[in-house]
Amino acid sequence: MLIDKIKKLDTWTAPELPKNIPHGDMPGDKVEINEGHIKKANIIFPKLLQLLEEQANKGKEKVVITVCGGSGVGKSEIASILSYYLTKGGIKSYTLSGDNYPRRIPMHNDAERLRVYEELGREGLEDYLGSDKEIDFAEIEKIALDFKAGEKNISLKRMGRKEDELWHEVVDFSDTDVLIIEWTHGNSDNYKGVDIPILLNSTPKETLEHRRARNRDGATDSPFTTMVLEIEQGMIKSQAHKAKIIVSKQGEILSFDEYTKLMESES
Rank of each mutant, 00 (worst) to 15 (best):
M1R: 13
L9V: 06
D10C: 04
D10E: 14
T11V: 09
W12V: 04
T13R: 03
E16I: 15
L17Y: 03
P18H: 15
N20L: 15
P22I: 15
P22L: 14
H23K: 08
G24Y: 15
G24C: 15
M26C: 10
P27D: 13
G28F: 15
K30I: 13
V31L: 10
E32P: 00
I33W: 00
N34G: 12
E35L: 10
E35H: 14
A41P: 03
I44W: 07
P46N: 11
P46K: 06
Q50G: 13
L52V: 07
E53A: 09
E53D: 09
V63E: 08
I65C: 03
C68Y: 06
G69H: 02
G70F: 05
S76H: 09
S80A: 13
S83A: 09
S83P: 01
L86F: 11
L96V: 07
D99C: 01
N100T: 04
Y101E: 13
P102C: 13
I105E: 10
P106N: 11
P106G: 11
P106W: 14
N109Q: 14
R115E: 13
V116W: 12
E118S: 05
G124K: 06
L129D: 05
D132F: 14
E134H: 05
E134P: 02
I135W: 14
D136H: 09
A138H: 13
E139N: 02
I140D: 03
F147G: 01
F147L: 03
K148M: 11
A149D: 13
N153S: 05
I154W: 15
L156C: 13
K157G: 03
K157N: 15
M159E: 12
M159H: 08
E163Q: 08
E165D: 07
H168G: 03
V171E: 14
V171S: 04
S174W: 14
S174V: 11
D175S: 11
V178W: 14
V178K: 06
L179R: 03
L179Q: 06
I180S: 02
I181V: 08
I181R: 03
T184I: 12
H185C: 04
H185V: 01
V194C: 01
D195E: 10
I196Y: 11
P197R: 02
I198F: 06
L199G: 01
N201D: 14
N201V: 04
S202L: 03
T203H: 09
P204H: 10
E206W: 08
L208E: 07
R211S: 07
R212S: 02
R212A: 12
A213E: 14
A213L: 10
D217Y: 11
A219M: 01
D221S: 00
T226M: 05
M227E: 08
V228K: 10
E230R: 11
E230A: 10
G234D: 05
M235V: 04
H241V: 07
K242I: 08
K242D: 08
A243Y: 09
K244C: 11
I245N: 00
I245F: 10
I245P: 12
K249F: 13
E252V: 00
L254I: 01
F256R: 00
E258F: 02
Y259V: 07
Y259N: 04
K261R: 08
K261G: 01
M263V: 10
M263C: 06
S267K: 14
